[in-house]
């Protein structure tokens, strides 16, 4: 047990050291969500859609403008969770989840590099558990992902992101959401990439997976506004549950007793347990000697 922990720790530390020592890697994986937030998020003025021009407003009787305002508020809170929400904040929290997808992809890439450089063989001839290798990778990916996600949050706050958090427990739940989401995504991605012999095919796979996973989640757009066929994909996409849980916990200020929050938390926990187990199992099969 202690031995496994030190094996896993050493493998994870290697990745983490490599990551924080190369600012370019950090920059490259953070810049894309930031572009989405600042360009797409700022350009789309959600509440502006419903603004009534002054001249029309003056002609309307006060009771009908109040009625109109309450309808708009109703629509906004039904689809986006709150009526006073701004799209930048909405998408920023989405991007906090999406960046985990990016960091998981790059940790999957690291296994392809390890294979190519011969480092994987060095791990395989060592008297360590095979699962320690994959575990170490997953943990380093989670650490990187959560750190970068919080970095995105801080940059978002500087750019006008408005958060609402019920208490410290809810913030911890948000951190757990990030960690669970990171673990499940990286376990699955590693299970796929550990089989690929060249990193070119890995780039192809990661391009193939990244965009569909992002667009079928609720990162950019609420699930309830999607057409039915797309909603099916959104509901089975772990990114959706991770992001929705985050929004409940830090954007909408839901208490941990809120049924919606608990619902996403339990789905995400189940998914993370199943995905991590399956990912490690599948990777171990791929690492078995032939």
């Amino acid at each position: 047990m202690m031995e496994s922990a030190s094996e896993i720790g050493a493998i994870a530390m290697r990745e983490i050291k490599k990551w924080y020592r190369s600012p370019i890697l950090l920059f490259m994986t953070t810049i894309q969500p930031l572009l989405w937030m600042s360009l797409y998020g700022k350009a789309f003025n959600l509440t502006g859609l419903f603004r009534i021009p002054e001249d029309i407003l003056n002609q309307l009787p006060p009771e009908s403008t109040a009625r109109f305002a309450s309808i708009v508020n109703e629509i906004l809170s039904r689809f986006f969770g709150a009526s006073d929400i701004d799209f930048f904040s909405y998408i920023s929290v989405g991007m906090m989840g999406v960046i985990l997808l990016f960091t998981s992809m790059s940790s999957g890439m690291s296994i392809a590099w390890d294979r190519r450089l011969g480092f994987l063989n060095k791990l395989l001839v060592a008297p360590i558990r095979r699962s320690s290798i994959v575990f170490g990778k997953i943990i380093s990916s989670v650490v990187r992902g959560v750190a970068q996600s919080l970095l995105v949050m801080l940059i978002g706050l500087a750019l006008g992101l408005r958060l609402r958090i019920a208490g410290p427990l809810e913030f911890l739940i948000a951190l757990a959401a990030l960690a669970f989401l990171g673990a499940s995504l990286s376990a699955l991605i590693i299970a796929v990439t550990v089989r690929l012999k060249s990193w070119e095919s890995h780039i192809a796979v990661s391009n193939l997976l990244t965009l569909p996973l992002m667009f079928t989640s609720s990162a950019l757009y609420p699930v309830s506004l999607m057409p039915d066929w797309l909603r099916v994909f959104a509901v089975v996409n772990p990114l959706t549950h991770g992001i929705e849980l985050l929004r409940q916990a830090i954007l909408l200020g839901a208490p941990f007793t809120s049924p919606e929050l608990l619902w996403h938390l339990s789905i995400l926990t189940l998914f993370a347990a199943a995905a991590t187990y399956a990912g490690i199992h599948l990777s171990n099969i791929a690492l078995r000697r032939t």
Binding site: R14, K18, R21, S22, G118, F119, N121, K122
Partner: peptide, 9 residues
């Protein structure tokens, strides 16, 4: 091994 597996970074 034939390859260098020490980590450059």
């Amino acid at each position: 091994p034939q390859e260098l597996t020490v980590d450059d970074e």
